[in-house]
Structures are given as C-alpha cells and as structure tokens.
Design a binder for these strands. Sequence first.
DNA 1: TGAGCGGCTGAAACCGGTTACAAAGAAAGG
DNA 2: CCTTTCTTTGTAACCGGTTTCAGCCGCTCA
Lengths: 344, 344
Amino acid sequence: MTTIREIAQLCGVSVATVSRVFNQPLTVSKEKREVVERVARELDYRPNESARALATKRSGLIGLVWDTDHRRPGWRHPYLQELLIGLKSALSAHGYHLLMLATSGSAALRAVGASLADPVAYVNMTRRHHLGGLVLIDSGSDASAFTAFAQSGLPCVAVDVEVDGPRATYVTSDNVGGAAMAVRHLVEEGHRRIATVTGPHANRPAADRLAGFRAAMAEAGLAVPPEYVVEGDFYRPSGQAAMRTLIALPEPPTAVFCAGDEMAVGALLAARHAGLRVPDELAVVGFDDIELAALVDPPLTTLAQDKAGIGVAAARAVLTMVHGGEKPAPAFLPTKLVVRASSR
Amino acid sequence: MTTIREIAQLCGVSVATVSRVFNQPLTVSKEKREVVERVARELDYRPNESARALATKRSGLIGLVWDTDHRRPGWRHPYLQELLIGLKSALSAHGYHLLMLATSGSAALRAVGASLADPVAYVNMTRRHHLGGLVLIDSGSDASAFTAFAQSGLPCVAVDVEVDGPRATYVTSDNVGGAAMAVRHLVEEGHRRIATVTGPHANRPAADRLAGFRAAMAEAGLAVPPEYVVEGDFYRPSGQAAMRTLIALPEPPTAVFCAGDEMAVGALLAARHAGLRVPDELAVVGFDDIELAALVDPPLTTLAQDKAGIGVAAARAVLTMVHGGEKPAPAFLPTKLVVRASSR
DNA sequence: TGAGCGGCTGAAACCGGTTACAAAGAAAGG
DNA sequence: CCTTTCTTTGTAACCGGTTTCAGCCGCTCA
C-alpha cells in the first residue's frame, strides 16, 4: 500500500502538503497539487482509513442498531429492505458507511449474559469505533434500550420509535394524517359506523394512528363508542381476534381501520370466517402497504409509507448532528392512500 | 477516553504490559494482570479500534456488498432479513462486525458515473478499511462484478451465486436435492406428467434446480418432453406466463415444479384464470418458502431454505479464510419440503 | 559454580495519517 | 523603503495502540 510519505518523497514535498492536497486542496499551490494528484493516481494511492480515524477521531461510519428480538423469533421488520436502501444511499452520498452492530440476535453473546441490547454496549461500540452516530431500528420490543442510549448525548436517530435526548430524534410516518385519510376515505364511501384496531398504546405510531382516527371521526361528526376501539399488537392473530369481537357486537361496524396491514389481514380472515363479504358488508383499511397487502383476496386498501424515504430522512438527520448541526425536529413523512378492493 | 498509557502509569507498568494483558494475557504475571484488569475496569477503558486496526492491519470488520439493482427497482431479496440475522450473529460471536458498503443503490454516486458495483471500488474499500473479507449478496443481475472481485485474491463469500477465485467461495441451498425432493413428492402423489418452470439458465441455483428435477424424473422413469421445461426469470409474471403456455399444451402437465415461489404464485394465478382447481387438476410446488407461500390460496407446497443458516455458513466461510484457513468448499445447505394444500 | 534456558518486563520503533506552529517569500500599505 | 499581512510550505508532535528486541531474573542441570 502506498503511503503519503512515499508520495511526498516522489514529489519532493512534505507529507503535510500531500495530506493537504486531499483535505484542503485550496491551501496548496496549483502546481504542487497537480503533481501530487498525478503521482497519487499513478501509485493507486488509497488513504488508510484507520490512520485517518485515529488522527481525526472520526471514522466516517454510522452505526446501525437493529435488534432481532429473541422473544419474538418470527418477527420481521415490515420494510427493512427499503429502509436499508434509503439509509445506505443517503449515507454513501455523503461518504459515510453503515456499520451493523452486533445485537441480541447473537446466541453466543446472550449465552454469556451479555445482551448487546444493553445501551452501554451501544455507547461502547460507538466510542471504540469512532462512529459518528447511530440509527436505531425498532426491534418491536426493547425500546427502553433506545431511550437509554438517547440519553448518552451521542447523535442518534430512531425509526418508528419516539426517543428524546440531547442529540436524539426520530423519524416516522405521518401517522396522524394517514389515519385521518383512512377515515375520510371510509366516510366518503358512505360508512358511519367505523371501528379501529390499534397497536399497543405505548407505541408512538400506534398512539398517533389512534389519535388521527379520533380526530377525523370527530371532524366527520361521527361518534366513536368505546367498544369500537380494540387494542391489538400489530400481529395478524390479534387483528383476527379483534375483528371477531367487533363482529359479535350488537351493532357491529360496517368498516374497520386497522393500524397495521398484518392485523388488517387478520381482520379479513375473521370476516371470511364469519361469512361477511368484503367490502360490501365490511370495509377494511390497513396501514403500511406491506407486500402482502396487494396479494390478499380482496386486495387491501392501505396507507403506503414512504419506506425508503424514511431511511433517507434518518440518514439526513444523523448526518446533520454529526456535522455539528442542531438536533433536527422529529420527521413525519407523508403517507399515501392506496385504494384497493377491500374498501370499495 | 482512557488510554493504555494512563493505565500503565497508574499501575506502574509499561504500556507494553497493559497491551499484553488484553491480547496475550498468559504472558503476563498473574499479579500485574489483575491490577491492570481492575484499573481498566474502574476507568471504563475501551480500546481504540482505529489505533488497533492501524497497528495490526486488521479491523475486525467484514464487508457486506448488497447491490440494489437499479435496473429492477422493485426487486427485493427473498430473505434478506433472515440472512442478515444469520450473518450478524455468527460474525458477532467471533467479535466481528458487518460493514455495509455503499453500492450502486446510491443515485448520487451513479450520477457522478461512479457506480460502486465496480469491483475496483470493492477492493478499494476493503483495503482502505482493513476489512477481513467480503460477503456478496446477489443483486439479481450484476454478478459479473462479483466474479471480478473474486479474482482479486481477497477473501470473499457469495450467497446464491457461483464464484471462483483464489480465496472466493459461495454458499447456497442444496438446490439439486431440493428439486429432487419436490419431484419425488409429486410422484408419490401419483403424478406422472410433471413440468417445470426454471429460473434463468445462467443462474447457478436455477441450473441446479433444473438438474435436480431432471435427475429425479429419470430416477422415477418419467420422460421430460422439451415443452415441459419453460424458462422464467424468478418473477411472478414469468411464472404466470409459463403456466399459461403449459396449460395450452395438447397434453398439459398435471403437476408443475417452479424454481421459485414467486413464479409458483404466478402459476397459481394462471391456473385460477384457466379455471383449473389446485391441487386436483394441477399440483404446484415452489422453492424458497417465502412468507407469501403460506398465505396464498391454496397455500403453496414448497422447499424451505435454511435462510439464517445460509447467513451463518457464509459468515463461517469468510472467517475461516480471514483466519488464514484454506478456502472452504462451496456449501450447499439442506432444504426442507413443506407440504401444503397446493400439492395434496 | 557457571552456562543455559524460560518467563516477564520495558524501551522504543512503528502503523499512516492530521495539524499546530514556525518560517520563508510574496504582496500590499504607508 | 520598511512594515504588515497573506500565502504556501515544512518540521515535528500527536492520535492510541502493537510488537520487536534486549535485558533481567530465577531455575535447572552439569
């Protein structure tokens, strides 16, 4: 590997000059700069990132914390792939790379009792590797670790989880607005008895979707009887169970808004088992626009999240802080109503 | 941040001794070792990975190349999530982390004409960051870059793509065996006219699945007329089109083995459109066991890949080479036949 | 008793960059 | 013409570890 000393020698300049050519080109005279650049190219010079990171205390890496919750082995992130694409492209556009930190997914580490969901471990890794900051992806459970990390003062951005701290912010969809759109759509279709299946109330997106639902219902002058709000857990069975409950009511709803597509699919199943025709006897709207939504029968009306956009927003937010900027306000990305046969 | 010099001073030993305590503990006397360890703990010492990497030329990082093919924007890896889980946990069990390298997914980079699908860029990154090696995940298209990288002599392991090079190997499912299992299952169900929808012939897993199909058919003493082998591209529409072709044959098959679940779903659609009852008039078997397989109607019989296991195998293979071991032979992980209603 | 050996330890070089500081030369101002 | 300021450059310290090498010590064995 070529080093700047070799280049310096060949060009008859000092190492400082060579270093400057790559970092503050304008402070070097045009002639020397061109010579150095040419020689560097000829020798296929590549800066040693470790040496750089050592000297500058910056590595050009952003940590990615993505805990696979071992209490829910089958859990899958609804849009990890798109999220990663967005993250990666936005980061690499600024010369950053993404370091996936080891997490509780490691059976070996768990065996030693060293769950890396431990925020101390995050901080540890961040400092050891001179990470600029972290992107935290909801594991579906252990958000407490995120909160704790957010307190550490290191730049971090959470996706779909509310966190707060000196340099911590989060990115999620406009859940309030999305839910409201769902309700308005159903109202336009003529529904007046509209129920909702929510996510866990402690979950920020779930709470927001419920809030949006209530707001839009009020706006439409419709009442929301307490039994029309059933709490689920984002998984399909809970949606199915909730729908069964709703169907059994003395005055069942004619439409239901589910805070997640998986639960909406569960609702479709419950409707089918009860012999209800969708959308004629029951309209269903979901949230997320997972791949499955377009494939179930009938295809599911849902609110599409800007999945890659969320990744991009997260990347931007963390980079802003890394570069010393103010902590950005939480971002709420717009969602898009995708009308399919389940509601029309 | 605490450094080994501080620790050395506090303990009244040299920095060399402190360093040894962490790297070759047995060469240090018990007393000094314990003192150093205690002080390090009290000071919350964390080794500076950049300094380490600089001195040792090893960073403890493995590169992950996952190209999102911009020619197929909607493309999604069938099991990226499970793959990552397997990779991560196996790597972290050995103290390694995964660095996601920026790729052609970056619009910004593409705009500059600097497609990072360029193997030169991979090598570049690998050296700059002192990566131990790379894991290459098929982008569905640009495998030529992988091949080129494999020639570089740096340790690399490809997933689901055949590569060869001095320190390059690959990991995939036992596609031959899986396909054979599919055929045997269909034969046991009484089928004799069995067709197949393959993937692109240039694709190694696709070729292997076809080979397994042919072998098992021969074993069962069944002929495979040329028109019973239709080439697809792993996407759903190609499966649907292929199935239409097969149904239109003068003597259509009673069963079809599709080299991928997406294509199998397409086949189910074609059957439904043609008014064929599945499995009574047409049995369908897929490959992959994607999430959707269990959810279509009827649920799809398929060959489940050991998704996380493939990640673990890839991690093991790359670590073996990183640690100076011989290049491991390509790994073919066993698949499991999951019988559902589409074939029974 | 002396040579030989193995276990521990420390001094110092080294990894490959960045950057503070000083100095030299050129340009500008009085 | 002298002073001041700006631009460009080089020297050398520094980032925080690892590792080579040599030396010291205490034992063993002849």
